[in-house]
Amino acid sequence: MAILSVENLSKNYGHIKALKGISFSVPKGSVFGILGPNGSGKTTMLGIVMSILKPSGGGYKLFDEEPRDEHRKMIGTLLETPNFYHYLSAVQNLKITAAIKGHGEEDIEQVLHTVDLYKRKDSPFSSYSLGMKQRLAIGAALLGGPDVLVFDEPTNGLDPVGIAEIRSLIKQLAQQGKTIIMASHLLDEVEKVCTHVAILKQGDLVASGNVDEIFVNDDMVELGAANSAKLKELINALPGLSRTKEEEGKLILYFPPGTANLESINQHCFNNGVVLNHIQVKRKSLESKFFELTNS
């Protein structure tokens, strides 16, 4: 089952195209990262899914159904900023969230413990630091134990300890089988937590799929030769090679990031009497993929 499927979604602000017809789907039980630099359309996309923005074109489905208000009550969402009544305390604010979602108030204290705000539960929201506000927003999303969570830049404003805590919380939630959709511009955040990823760039979907497929940590070199049996034999002698794999008659060599050298591979094979008819770097590494995204 797809928790969320986005079909050809677009959004224009006047002449500016914030989303240019993107499609992807979020499988149940995945930790789905939406990665992209600032202004790439992550929040716009989630805003449409959460019904606070109107799409200019395309549509989306929640739980394989046409979206309804009841669907949002089943999803815990932190979108862009922590939005609370400034003059109310954490507990008073969470009571409002629980009432809107149609839950009881019984798990408010436990949620406040989870996000480490219990000691300040009766202080007004306006007195909180940025990190505390962020944690309260995560707490509000956890109310009622929803099976689906949407976190937009969840570690925004948190200190290193807070970041580590939230990441381990997200991993914990994922282990409980919850589906988590997480937008971030932090590469290592997505890499450390997510199972799936969609990469946005200026409103376009650059790539989407399994994290292992999208972000190949090792350099991959694809080789082909007429005498593939001999090729297989001799490449084992290549320095720095981490592993090999055979795929569709081609041989794929894995090297630690940034160490693959096509020239020396070619030289090595030629010196040992095998002439290559195919040599190609197969996928870009994690870092270069990230720079490709953010530098343009």
Binding site: L79, N83, Y85, H86, I100
Partner: peptide, 20 residues
Amino acid sequence: NEFTYKTNRQNIIDGWSRRQ
């Protein structure tokens, strides 16, 4: 206040319809 605190958005996100 709802606009200032962006709680209008949060109320919808949490499951109210705009009509409500």
